[in-house]
Structure formats: C-alpha cells, structure tokens
Amino acid sequence: MPDDSRRLITIVTEAILEVELCEILERLGATGYTVTNARGSGHRGIRDAGWSSSSNVRVEVVCNEEVAQRITNHLRDNYYDDYAMILFESDVRVLRPEKF
C-alpha cells in the first residue's frame, strides 16, 4: 500500500505577496496550491481586508516532507523579518498520493 501521508502547509500573509509566493511555491516543488482571501488580527494589528493594503491571503499547499522543509526554510529566511506572515504545518492523509 502506498504511503498516503503528506504535509499541509498553511501560510497567512499580506495579499501583496500572493503572486510572488505562488511562483516560489512552484519553483520549490509544490505541485499545486490553494489561495483564499482572509482577514484577522495579530501582531501587526487588524488586517480587515477593507481594501488592498490591508488584505491577507491564506495559501495552502499539500506536499511531501522534503518540499515542505524547503518551503518553510525559504520563507523563514526571506520574509519573516519584514512581512506579516505566519506559517503552520500539519499531517494529512490524501486520497491520491500520486498527485502530491
């Protein structure tokens, strides 16, 4: 039976980074991603999505352990200092492992 466990990475960050971030994800080996608009509150104050400068996006990626490691390292080194960004990982089961 094939191994069907994968990592789910969820990134919540500034909407302005969306395009750049998606390019990076693909370059680092993600086979796909899902982007949704988001709003909320955190260290950088309320991000209420009232207009473009205060909008957040939530990007979700399902990938294998190795790609997950590459993505988290890259984002930590390049974005954490200057941008509003959080990232968390969880273990998930997928139905068609060959897709991820």
Partner: peptide, 10 residues
C-alpha cells in the same frame, strides 16, 4: 505603498 512594500520591505 504597493511598490515600496515589495521593493523596500523593511
């Protein structure tokens, strides 16, 4: 704001 956010993030 959009340009500076990308070019001068600090």
């Amino acid at each position: 704001p959009a340009a500076m956010r990308i070019a001068v993030p600090e």
